[in-house]
């Protein structure tokens, strides 16, 4: 923090070149189908690009290491949030298979959609009492 690092123009151009190259890679791999690895590859390239931007353009590589620690910590918290949430969504059917995915029959928000009963048959709008006036849904 005490000394200000001056990055040579060459480095900036090299970083910019790398970023353009990786953009080309992103486009190129989109022509192939890797199945469930599509998202992993796309996110991997994006993460690499973001890291290069943070390290070189944002000077984290040369700054006081506290700043890098803060940056890595914020990624760690994001990681905690996503992984632990996946512990829920990834295992919902573990005990009761019927709660595997959220009930999709009818959300009160979409009053414009035609009402159906549990078998998918149309129901008369006025006789159905689905409007969410209630105080508590749980």
């Amino acid at each position: 923090m005490s000394e200000h690092h001056i990055t040579p123009l060459k480095t900036y151009l090299a970083v910019a070149g790398t970023l353009f190259f990786l953009t080309v890679v992103t486009v190129w791999v989109s022509y192939f189908d890797f199945g469930s690895f599509n998202i992993v590859i796309a996110m991997g390239v994006a993460t690499l690009k973001a890291s290069i931007v943070a390290l070189f353009f944002m000077h984290l590589l040369w700054d006081d290491k506290k700043n890098l620690t803060m940056f890595v910590m914020s990624l760690m918290f994001l990681g905690i949030f996503i992984t632990v949430t996946l512990l829920d969504t990834g295992f919902r059917g573990g005990v009761n298979s019927e709660v595997e995915s959220p009930i999709n029959n009818r959300a009160a928000f979409y009053d414009s959609l035609p009402l159906t009963d549990t078998h998918g048959h149309p129901v008369d709008e006025h006789s159905a009492d689905h409007h969410g006036e209630g105080e508590d849904h749980h």
Binding site: I80, L87, D88, T89, F91, R92, V99
Partner: peptide, 21 residues
């Protein structure tokens, strides 16, 4: 404090596994 938020959601329909964790 960052690792316990799901204890507000025991009846929300989250997975049994995450309830235990």
């Amino acid at each position: 404090g960052f690792l316990v938020w799901g204890h507000h959601m025991f009846t929300s329909g989250q997975s049994v596994f995450s309830q235990i964790v």
